[in-house]
Design a protein around this nucleic acid. Sequence first.
RNA 1: GGUGAGGUGGAUGAGUGGCUGAAAUCAACGGUUUGCUAAACCGUCGUACGUCCUUAAAGAUGUACCGAGGGUUCGAAUCCCUCCCUCACCGCCA
Length: 423
Amino acid sequence: MLQLQVIRQNPGFVKERLAIKNFKDIQLVDEIIGLDDQRKKLQNESDTIQSKINAASKEIGQLMAKGQKEEAEKKKQEVAELKSSLQPAADELNGTEKKLQDLLILLPNLPSDKVPPGKTPADNVVVREGGIKPQLPGDAVPHWELIKKYDIVDFETGAKITGSGFPLYKGKGAKLQRALVQHFLDFNTKAGYTEYLPPLMVNETSARGTGQLPDKEGQMYFMPADNYYMIPTSEVPLTNIYRDEIVKETDLPIKMTGFSPCFRREAGSFGADVRGLNRVHQFDKVEIVQIVQPDKSYTAHEEMVSHVEQLLQTLGLPYRILALCGGDMSFASALTYDFEVFSAAQQKWLEVSSVSNFETFQTNRMKIRFKDGKGKMQLAHSLNGSSLALPRIVACILENNQSTDGIKLPPVLHSYFGDVMIS
RNA sequence: GGUGAGGUGGAUGAGUGGCUGAAAUCAACGGUUUGCUAAACCGUCGUACGUCCUUAAAGAUGUACCGAGGGUUCGAAUCCCUCCCUCACCGCCA
């Protein structure tokens, strides 16, 4: 959520930035300022009345103590009158505050000035590429065929147990998941991230905190009996660890990593994109999250990008890093870099990570703050990134490393996997 | 699921209707002392939203907040109701 203070101080700037994000309801900015003006006025009114009531109540107490009953009764009448005039003012104030909040939560985060202009994924900018695209033999096949050949993921049975998009990993396929997760977590903890294993369901407050609600309501699985949401990413529980906390400045940066399955309804997506492991409803992911001082968030962001890049390099996969344009960024993000790996048999770039700086957008909702050197309360900045999402990594490893002998695994996985290839 | 006890400021913890935004202790911060460290002593030490003042900072002042939401009362941390959470015991169970 944007800070009201920022909107008030520079509404023109806010509108300009929102436009870069393709945000349509720019007039909300003026509506919000209008409502806030009204809110202030109403608060002033009701505070004044309340103040009189409080003063009169105090006097009643004193009069009673002195035994001046009639005087006290008179005062009570006064208070009764004040109260009847307070009621409508208080109601109006509450209504206005609620309306203000309702509008405020509709505004997406402002893109930072580093965000490239543009409206669609075609406008994203390739920052750099790495790794080498393999030259595959003519009979190379996409991963969904390799999966069948080596019997390592069973989509049909997954669909039988649950529904489509719930893969059943089997044998070496299951073990490869475990090996990857272990490698990713080790890599992250070595870089100073504290490991967590979070709850897989969150309450509504948590989902609002990171910005999944109200924006992505339909993308999460919901458990109505208990009002819980299945997490679409461990970013949600991890960042919410610090919700409503005032942290010590010396504790920053806070660096967290966590593994979790992720659940996404992916409502509305269909077509060639969903073949094999390209898009599924449940997948495993290791996430990194940082909470940092505002003036350090962009350095931290670069550091996280470089961290994920190095992790990707340990797998030897061809990759590229994209700076997302204003129109393609997520609701809550101020700057996002996407990582894609090149899946050679499909001849396709697949997104495997997204590293974002949210500045104060999430921390304002969650009230994650710290006291700076001058003793002033400040919102921290939050960032997160995948490191990494598994299915597409697996797809890419399978396709790019296929040979007549089997799938050659990257050396870094050998000890975790207990073998050098899948055959 | 049942029964019982609880949820107070960074922490511990006092507070059963007005003098309590909240004792005390610890932690933290500033200072004095000291050859250094420690100790001792003095001081500061909640958040949010308004208003006034100010270039700003600071300051003054109002309101709200003692798990959440309602209620009783002139007045609620304190009494009542509902919900949430924590702990203990029982039941069930990986």
